[in-house]
Design a protein around this nucleic acid. Sequence first.
DNA 1: TAAATTAGAGTTATCGGTAACTCTATACTA
DNA 2: TAGTATAGAGTTACCGATAACTCTAATTTA
Lengths: 336, 336
Amino acid sequence: MVTIYDIAQRSGVSAMTVSRVINNTGRISDKTRAKVKKVMEEMHYVPNQMARSLVLQHTRLLFLLIADITNPFYTTLSRGAEDAATKNGYKLLFGNSDENLEKESDYIHTILTTRVDGVMMAPTGDPSLPNLESLLQHQTPFVLIDREVPGVECDIVLGDSKEGARQLVDHLVEQGHTRIMMVNGSLSSSSARLRLQGYREALQLNGLKYEPEYLFETSFGPQNDLSAMNAWIDSINPLPTAIIAGNNVIAIELIRLLQQRGLRIPDDISIVCFDDFGPYADINPFMTVVAQQAYQFGYLGMQMLIDRIQSGSASGPWRKVVLPAELIVRSSVKQL
Amino acid sequence: MVTIYDIAQRSGVSAMTVSRVINNTGRISDKTRAKVKKVMEEMHYVPNQMARSLVLQHTRLLFLLIADITNPFYTTLSRGAEDAATKNGYKLLFGNSDENLEKESDYIHTILTTRVDGVMMAPTGDPSLPNLESLLQHQTPFVLIDREVPGVECDIVLGDSKEGARQLVDHLVEQGHTRIMMVNGSLSSSSARLRLQGYREALQLNGLKYEPEYLFETSFGPQNDLSAMNAWIDSINPLPTAIIAGNNVIAIELIRLLQQRGLRIPDDISIVCFDDFGPYADINPFMTVVAQQAYQFGYLGMQMLIDRIQSGSASGPWRKVVLPAELIVRSSVKQL
DNA sequence: TAAATTAGAGTTATCGGTAACTCTATACTA
DNA sequence: TAGTATAGAGTTACCGATAACTCTAATTTA
């Protein structure tokens, strides 16, 4: 690896002079600058960011930890985050926790040892608390996306889960449904709790009763074993006329299971869910969803993070952005 | 930030001793080790990977640069890559070039300055050559995925594009189609060229003629402006009975355009494509595709990369893995 | 014209670690 | 019992950069 010293020697100047032309600081004569630049090109010099960061005490690196790289919500969000980061001169590194606390913890460790300037992350759920505390302890600025975790104060971008649930229920009720169940993500995540709450409240507002067996709790991430969900469906009699899925991934799994039983959607059973399907949403006009503005999640969140870093205030008044949810009616609900 | 020196001072030992307990090297008495460990926990010490890498001359960091984070092929591939990396004790960082050469170049710069140990990437196309040459120049081991670029020798994982195209054409011909067109990705990418070649050869083998206007060239990535594709469709008369899309993203866009014209698939026109749709493939049994083993792409490629790094041979005989393509017949083709 | 600036560099210390070498008791050997 | 090993540390140099300070010759100022 060619270093600043190699360049210095070949150019007949000191290392400091080379550093100055690299960073465009200090006073350098045009002649010297030109010569050093030429040598740098000849030797294909690339600065060592680690050495630089060591003394500068910052990396210009930001980290985005998403919960499911397979989910269009997060990939769309990622693009928003990347755009905002790039626009501000930061590089963005990605990680994927897979809705798995252990993987999340590993990434937190990487984040800490790598000394990135800031982190934007979707916590796997309430158990992420220690991870966030680590971040706090090491004064690494972070903003949360999609999920709050009780016990930490910080900047956060949220979707309006409760209102979304209400819209979904109202829509179903309008279509004549009265037996409406829910397959939700893990209740250790605040968004799942809010969605459940919104669902129950909306049920009540519509004069419908909620029964414990109306709810099945699973994970927001892809499952390799769907047998528990299958068993739940078995246990339900009669089947609901409509099911609300806690997110798009759950909806997919649910539909697969239902179809395996020969049930058609929406003819035999109606399904709606939170989160849209990215590019796969309007191909075969299908799922009625409450869409979240995924790109905005990423863009706004990243902007908040960068503001926080640049203002240098690791504490202070926290910002909480709640993005509205939008009901998009397609054709997964049957009018009864 | 607490450093090794802070730990040393509080423990009443030298920095070197602390370093030794961190890395489990050298001879340390149990008593000293216990004390140092205790102090490290108390002070929430996290090693500075940059300082460490600076002297160690390696980072244990690998980089995965994909071309479209929105595409299930790449996200599935990412999970395979991540699994392989983790299994071998490496951390994986992700980047998304968005099929954009400039973004790719930016990432290459980050990769070089960050001094990651190795890179796995899907080059945007032949113009990626200078980027790969940079990697070569700096002796950063890399393996390519999905696309070859003329002029560089390296480890690579490819899908069998030509054979895949043949299977697609054969299938269409079997279903009675004779007017088969193709909307392909940029021909600056080897996989697009191979797919085109396979398509043309298969046409010929089936006694069908190829006309220049049968081909429309676009990008493998998502387009924000579909007007050119629309114009191409306008210009075709009569419409083909079937179209082969160069990948899943193109298929989606094509379908959207076709549906906007009131055409139904497969009743009015049949569509097939390369690459499957991840979780969205079998929901509403739909696209007939030639699927690539995305997870294997990632896992195998990452394994090759790590082997290359650990063997320390930056040159030598290159490995080329060609993964077979599998035709999955669903319902986007009409029997004529 | 002497004093004060200033342009254009160079030196030294430091960031947070680790390798390689050194040092000192204590344990072991002949 | 003197000589040699060895356990258990400590010292020093260095990885590749930059901040802060210094130095010298040329230029400007009064």
